[in-house]
Design a binder for these strands. Structure first.
Lengths: 141, 141
DNA sequence: TGTCGATGTAATCAAAAAGATTACAGCAAG
DNA sequence: CTTGCTGTAATCTTTTTGATTACATCGACA
């Protein structure tokens, strides 16, 4: 399976906020029009990003802005903020038979290996920051 | 979200075949009893592993056996065999707005980064072989 | 060769997960 | 005190995943 689109939606959201911060009020509705999802989805995404201290959202008057230095926000921070793989990345079958020597020990044998693989992926995400993305994006415009 | 349990089921299946190859006929029913899933799920798993050249299955008389050297079968080979992340690991939101500068370029900016992260995870899986797992399992018994 | 226990595979179902959508209370600013 | 937006719960739909049923076919062996 896959990692929820919550993650790419969150990245997209931040890029929209950054790109239009000077010229538009970045409301959930405005962002939703670029990402093309329901505004409520954006609001929930913003809640997660706010809880992680990445953005500030004005209730009432509306609009969001990024409150951290772009180079201090990695893809991993966003990934964690929206909690797109709750628990482990790998999904285990739930009821291995404890009466079987293999079923009893399958977790002991596999869990660490799978965690290592997940960690390798996450480390790669730590290497990329919003500053990298906005730079790349700027070159396309 | 997560990577299908097809993957851990496949690994479990191979470990059962290895462990009992001398003493039992490893039928889909027998394996299913250790993994605790429906025997049809095991048959489908075995079909995938067979297509990847990892096992041989006897139609008719029944039973499966591993046909590769254990140290030549990595977790990555199994992962690929059962095709647990079809396409990319990360799930993109489907309709970014092409009329928006961010929506138009989000793939150009993100795709490579995400592929790199996925590759890092897969490289980690390549480092572990069935030989490693059976050794670890042996120590527990 | 005919029976028996397996596999190969399609078709159908059910359960779970992920999003979309509706609805509405509360806040901030003019 | 009105207006436009956020915060958040509740509900519904769609998709995905895995379970289950069903049956044709195969291989070994009496």
């Amino acid at each position: 399976m896959k990692i929820t689109s919550k993650f790419t939606v969150a990245v997209h959201t931040l890029l929209v906020i950054y790109t239009f911060s000077d010229t538009k009020k970045t409301t959930s509705e405005f962002i939703a029009a670029s990402v093309r999802v329901n505004p409520v989805v954006i609001r929930r995404t913003l809640l997660s990003l706010k809880a992680a201290g990445i953005v500030e959202v004005k209730a009432g008057s509306g609009g969001a802005r990024i409150v951290k230095d772009l180079k201090d926000v990695s893809l991993y921070d966003i990934y964690k903020a929206v909690d797109c793989v709750d628990g482990g990345l790998f999904h285990f079958h739930e009821n291995p038979n404890p009466a079987c020597p293999v079923g009893k020990n399958i977790h002991a044998v596999l869990d660490n290996r799978l965690s290592d693989a997940q960690a390798a992926m996450e480390n790669e995400l730590k290497k990329v920051t919003l500053a990298d993305l906005t730079r790349d994006l700027g070159e396309k415009l």
